[in-house]
Write a protein that binds this DNA or RNA. Structure first.
Lengths: 222, 222
DNA sequence: TTATACTGACTGACCAGTCAGTCAGTATTT
DNA sequence: AAATACTGACTGACTGGTCAGTCAGTATAA
């Protein structure tokens, strides 16, 4: 029976079902795909989208340049795949947080910690920076990011903020109209650390905590 | 005596005094320099620093490529000269506003209008966007901008915010530590409009007004 | 043996910066 | 005033280097 189940892989089964029982070849191929994605994330993070060299990605992944084009249509498709795989889980987490029945103040604290740990402390901050810095010259990247990531986060945040205003959890109704005001300091932190940290370092966690205190109308001494 | 004063132009006078009575040549040269700066601002705004082509700048300025290198050492020096001439006056204005004896709430409103009119409504927003987007890959540009523009604005803002906290003009002492929190939505607005305005336009003036209301602890209906 | 994955030299396009030569404008001589 | 010598602003073809994407040929699994 082992032979029979093996044979199913390629020949008679319809395309949709075919990817059963990988086989040495398919495994190796999938592993290479992962290696390319990983190497590309490194290169894009370090160099930016336009300046990253496909040759370097290949070298880092231990693969010939042509192999990359067997797995991804072009440089842009490669980048999009990275965005999807890196940001996707985070979007899901955020949607969960917004949907859960938790006090808004608690959500705020959770999101600060989530940002510091899961975005600022990882390659995700580089992905977000890349979208901001390369987006103007590669509109397709911006569109993709808006569709796959931003619009979903924004919708969740808006819905939660509207509920918060209705329930009186927060006093600034404008936040439901401009959820961007909640995220602005986080975006600024990503830009800042990429540009000016050597001249004037920024304590990102403290910055975001201070911002949340302000949004909730809490006054504190410096 | 007419002949004597004429001769002074070139021969006997020391070099430092020579640039009197421009002469057709010097006038033409200065005009071209201006034309190059203007054309370069257009090209950099539209394409970005790395992607702008010196050939295009030359074409737009009605000048040969080589001429640009007679006036500016290289692409980077050309860009720096643009930043200096475009942002310099604004920095001066801001320093004046911070130093003047005006209530902080009034300053806030003035700065919102100043930003909308003199930054967002002009090429200055493009310069700021360029620093944010190209800065990570051209650290010298970021350093130059920090030295010539940002550090000065930041110093003025910090000083004024400290005074405001002492006088009780504002209740969030953290703003003197993180003046970035005041500017973050303006920076986000520049990024946003460059990336996502076609999917979700942003009313920048309203965004900034809402933000100032929050900073001053004023509650309003949406 | 056949099908498939893989390789890397190659192509074509791009572009910052250079430099030998030109010529309008300025100074000097007659 | 006119002829002559000189200067340096200006030109644009060229160089040297970069890099995304291709494809004919090779290796390997089935």
């Amino acid at each position: 029976m082992a032979t029979a189940s093996k044979r199913k892989t390629a020949s008679s089964a319809p395309a949709a079902i075919r990817q059963k029982t990988p086989g040495a070849r398919a495994i190796r191929s999938a592993a290479r795909r992962e290696a390319i994605l990983h190497a590309a994330l490194d290169e894009f993070s370090a160099r930016g989208f336009a300046a990253a060299r496909i040759d370097d990605v290949a070298k880092r992944a231990g693969v010939a340049k042509g192999t990359i084009y067997l797995h991804f249509r072009d440089k842009e498709a490669l980048f999009q795949e990275i965005v999807r795989s890196v940001m996707g889980p985070l979007v899901g987490t955020l949607e969960g947080v917004f949907a859960a029945d938790i006090p808004l103040r608690t959500i705020a604290d959770q999101i600060v910690e989530l940002f510091v740990r899961e975005v600022f402390g990882t390659r995700r901050k580089d992905i977000i920076r890349l979208i901001m810095t390369e987006g103007p010259r590669f509109p397709k990247l911006a569109e993709f990011y808006y569709r796959e990531v931003l619009s979903r986060i924004l919708a969740g945040a808006r819905a939660r903020l509207r509920r918060a205003v209705e329930r009186g959890e927060i006093s600034h109704a404008a936040l439901a109209r401009f959820p961007q005001l909640v995220a602005a300091p986080a975006m600024l932190a990503i830009i800042w650390t990429g540009l000016f940290d050597r001249f004037e370092p920024l304590d990102v966690r403290e910055l975001l905590r201070a911002h949340m205190n302000i949004l909730f109308g809490e006054r504190k001494a410096a």
